[in-house]
Amino acid sequence: MKPESRKQEIINAASILFKEKGYSAVTMRDLAKAMGIKAASLYNHIQSKQEILSTIIINLAEEFTLGMSQIMNADIDPIQKLENIISMHVDVTLRNSDGLGALNSDWMHLEEENLIYFEKMRHNYEENFRSIVKMGVDAGEISPYNIEIMVFSTLSTLRTLYLWYPKQKNIDPDILKRDMISVLLKGMRSGK
């Protein structure tokens, strides 16, 4: 495993601060202090706080987009697709819960071009999720509840996992994944 670049160290430290304080409340001076360096040194590796935010959010959004694309294209039933989506969310949360704080709470601070790009990815992700649920309902694999309620309930839980899981001390990641899949899909699964 190669060592992290200084830029990645800065991004990781910023992710933690953004999650704790929110993007707007964090200054480059705060970030430098957290890293034990002078603020001016940050600019040798990064142009701005906005660059850090967009790197965090866009990289995560692209990871989710790629994962969703692979799941959508897989020749598996809708229930398996939903299981894979839940599994992907758990995996990303375990790898980068701090970055997910920025993705979920600070995305509106992105500058115009990145904001438009992010909103498009988020919209397409939700549409794909919705279409998988609808396919499951149409196939009789998922109960015919209101699709919007199922989408909202599931995605809300997955999107806030980054807040809850780090506080858990005794939940094994494999058990988390297994039980999240079971609990989230049990209420949706058709009794046929």
Rank of each mutant, 00 (worst) to 15 (best):
M1D: 04
K2N: 15
E4S: 04
R6G: 05
K7I: 01
E9M: 05
I11D: 00
A14Q: 12
S15M: 11
S15G: 14
E20A: 02
G22V: 10
Y23N: 01
A25Q: 14
A25H: 04
A25G: 02
M28C: 06
M28L: 13
L31P: 00
A32C: 02
A34F: 05
G36Y: 14
I37D: 02
I37K: 02
A39C: 06
A39M: 08
L42S: 04
Y43N: 03
H45D: 13
I46K: 04
S48C: 09
S54N: 10
T55S: 15
T55G: 01
I56T: 01
I56A: 00
I58C: 03
I58Y: 02
N59L: 05
N59S: 07
L60S: 09
A61W: 11
L66H: 11
G67K: 11
G67W: 00
M68E: 11
Q70A: 05
Q70F: 14
I71S: 08
M72V: 15
A74P: 07
D75K: 02
D75W: 03
D75S: 08
D75V: 01
D75A: 04
D77V: 09
D77K: 13
I79T: 09
Q80I: 12
E83D: 13
I85G: 01
I86H: 02
V90K: 08
D91W: 10
D91T: 09
T93A: 12
T93K: 02
R95L: 11
R95N: 04
N96C: 14
D98V: 03
D98P: 02
D98Q: 10
G99K: 05
L100S: 02
L100P: 03
G101M: 08
G101R: 08
G101S: 05
A102I: 00
A102C: 04
A102Q: 03
L103F: 15
S105A: 05
W107R: 08
E111K: 01
N114S: 03
F118C: 03
K120G: 02
K120I: 02
K120Q: 04
R122W: 15
H123D: 08
Y125S: 04
Y125E: 05
N128K: 12
F129H: 13
S131Y: 06
S131V: 09
V133E: 09
K134G: 01
K134W: 03
V137M: 15
V137I: 14
V137P: 09
D138R: 12
A139K: 13
E141F: 08
I142Y: 08
I142A: 11
I142N: 10
S143G: 06
P144S: 15
N146F: 07
I147K: 06
I149V: 15
I149T: 14
V151I: 14
S153Q: 10
R159M: 03
L161C: 13
L161Y: 12
W164P: 04
P166Q: 14
P166K: 06
Q168Y: 13
P173R: 13
D174G: 07
D174Y: 09
S182F: 14
V183H: 06
V183W: 11
L184H: 12
K186V: 04
K186D: 12
R189Y: 01
K192L: 14
